[in-house]
Structure formats: structure tokens, C-alpha cells
Design a protein around this nucleic acid. Structure first.
Length: 274
DNA sequence: AACGATCCCTGTTGGC
DNA sequence: TGCCAACAGGGATCGT
């Protein structure tokens, strides 16, 4: 669920909560959440007492610059999210990591534990981000970039858009939405797109992500992604194809189709997308 | 090397 | 109503 717009929405909400603040306490309720670190038990010792200088992001990775050559990395996986709460508020189930900051708690909630947190040296950070390509929003690919990334690839273009090496930040929802707006059938071999089609994809990647971001991201239900204050993102009602199997395409009314592509459920309009 | 398949987890949903 | 298989936003890994 958390794709670029959800991670970025979360990041923006956290800036006033975390930037310039000290991580006074850290609790790890589930050690499994600590990964990508040579010695996971170092996590608490490295991050405790540090002041968050700046919150950054690369693709779906949120990056807390702690100074001292340390970066706290948060990845939300499938079901991770952050909740900011008063310490007196009951912790919801699967609150796996808690940072105490001033009079509040920043809580990492992740039922499926596919997400992770780590506190990394520059070398470890490089290793964690190796193969993560240019950010889909901050450094969107040009037509030439995308052409180079897709050239000669036989798998579906949907598969290529999910490949974080090509462009970082798209997930299953927004990949479907980008291809709908670009008018491309998601099952097309990635290498088969004409230049004009690549241009449409290049145009729609940042456009769709900005749109999602402007609405606070996509909350598919109340149990998955929510903003740190507990509110739902409002982009769900504006999705054209994702999760709308059998319903009308907002552009032409044709029933939206669904198939499994790259082991992921994929939605498209057979009229608008060729 | 580049693929597809499988696995990591837990919770919800849909079909019987 | 109740049970259980199928399925879910991501991505690492392991075969072929």
C-alpha cells in the first residue's frame, strides 16, 4: 500500500514532529522489524539521543538524517504506517517500534512486518539503497531514460514500472493508474512501446503521483494506510482503474478488466489502453 | 543475466 | 452462521 505518495504524505506530516527534535527513547517490540543492518541490536544504541536533522525520502524509503554519519531508514513494506500519538493514548495492535519525541510518541505500526527500520552508516546505507533508481517524483525519468530502462525487455510494461531500479516509487496501485492515463495496455512487452507512448508514460508518472500526494495518498480501507494523525488519505475515490474491476472506466465507461501480471493484480480499460 | 516462482507475515474477505 | 482458502499496498531470494 504505501507507495511514493503515501510515504511522502507521511514524511510531510512528520517534518514538524521530528525535525530538530531528539529521539529521547526508542522501544522495539518486535526485533524482526530491525533488518538491513549488519548488527540489528545496534539500532537502539545508534539512534538513541540523536537529533533528527532532516527527513528525506528516496522512492518508498523514508530517510531520517541523524547527523554523526547515521541515517535512520524506514520502509513500510505492505502494511506499515506511522502514527503520532500522545503517550496516554492506547497503542494499537502491532505497534512494533516507538520513538519518544518531546511529549509525543512516533509509532511504527506494521501487522505483516514486511516493513523494516534500520540505523545505518553511509556504507550500510549505500548497500541498502543499491539498485534503487531515480526517484519518480524528485528526479522523474526522461523519455530517453525510460527508453533505456525498457529497451529489449520482454516482460510486461507493468512489471518494468514496478522495478525500482528503473524508477523508484511506483507500486501496484499507481503503476496501474499511470498506464491507464498513458493509454497503454499493462500486458504489453516493456520493450514494445513507441516513443510517443514512452512520452505519455513519462508525463503521467509524476502527474499521477502528484495527484495522489495532493489528496494525502490512497487509503484502501481503515486498517491499512492512514496518515500519522489517523486520517485516511482521500485518493481512493479518484482511482480510475485500481480495484475497480467490472466498474465503468471514468473516461469511456467500458468495464474495467483485471488479470494477474507479474504476480500482482492488474487493472485496465480495454478500450482506452492499447 | 534475466526471468518467473516462492516466501516472508497477519488480517480480511468471499465462497461454500 | 461458520469455516477456510484466497488474497492484499513490497521486495528478497532462489531456481531455471
Amino acid at each position: 500500500m504505501p507507495e511514493l505518495p503515501e510515504v511522502e504524505s507521511t514524511r510531510r506530516h512528520l517534518v514538524p514532529v521530528l525535525e530538530g527534535r531528539t529521539l529521547a527513547s526508542i522501544e522495539v517490540g518486535r526485533p524482526r522489524m530491525l533488518r538491513r543492518q549488519a548488527h540489528p541490536p545496534d539500532f537502539v544504541g545508534r539512534a538513541s539521543g540523536k537529533t533528527v536533522r532532516r527527513l528525506g525520502r528516496r522512492g518508498k524509503f523514508m530517510l531520517w538524517d541523524l547527523g554523526d554519519d547515521l541515517t535512520l531508514v524506514v520502509h513500510f513494506g505492505m502494511s506499515g504506517r506511522i502514527r503520532v500519538a500522545d503517550p496516554t493514548e492506547p497503542r494499537e495492535p502491532h505497534t512494533n517500534v516507538v520513538w519518544g519525541v518531546d511529549e509525543r510518541e512516533v509509532r511504527f505500526v506494521d501487522p505483516r512486518t514486511f516493513g523494516f527500520v534500520a540505523c545505518l552508516t553511509p556504507e550500510e546505507l549505500d548497500a541498502a539503497l543499491v539498485g534503487i533508481g531515480p526517484d519518480a517524483l524528485d528526479a522523474p525519468p526522461t523519455v530517453d531514460d525510460l527508453a533505456a530502462g525498457l529497451r529489449g525487455r520482454r516482460p510486461a510494461v507493468k512489471t518494468a514500472l514496478l522495478d525500482q531500479r528503473v524508477v523508484a516509487g511506483l507500486g501496484n496501485i499507481y503503476a496501474d493508474e499511470v498506464l491507464h492515463r498513458a493509454g497503454i495496455d499493462p500486458r504489453r512487452p516493456a520493450g514494445s512501446l513507441e516513443t510517443s507512448e514512452l512520452a505519455a508514460v513519462v508525463r503521467e508518472i509524476p502527474a499521477v503521483l502528484e495527484d495522489g500526494l495532493a489528496h494525502g495518498g490512497t487509503s484502501l480501507d481503515d486498517l491499512a494506510y492512514l496518515l500519522p494523525d489517523g486520517r485516511a488519505g482521500e485518493f481512493l475515490g479518484r482511482l480510475a482503474v485500481y480495484g475497480r474491476t467490472g466498474q465503468g472506466c471514468p473516461r469511456c465507461g467500458t468495464r474495467i478488466r483485471r488479470a494477474v501480471v507479474a504476480q500482482r493484480s492488474t487493472h485496465w480499460c480495454p478500450t482506452c489502453q492499447r
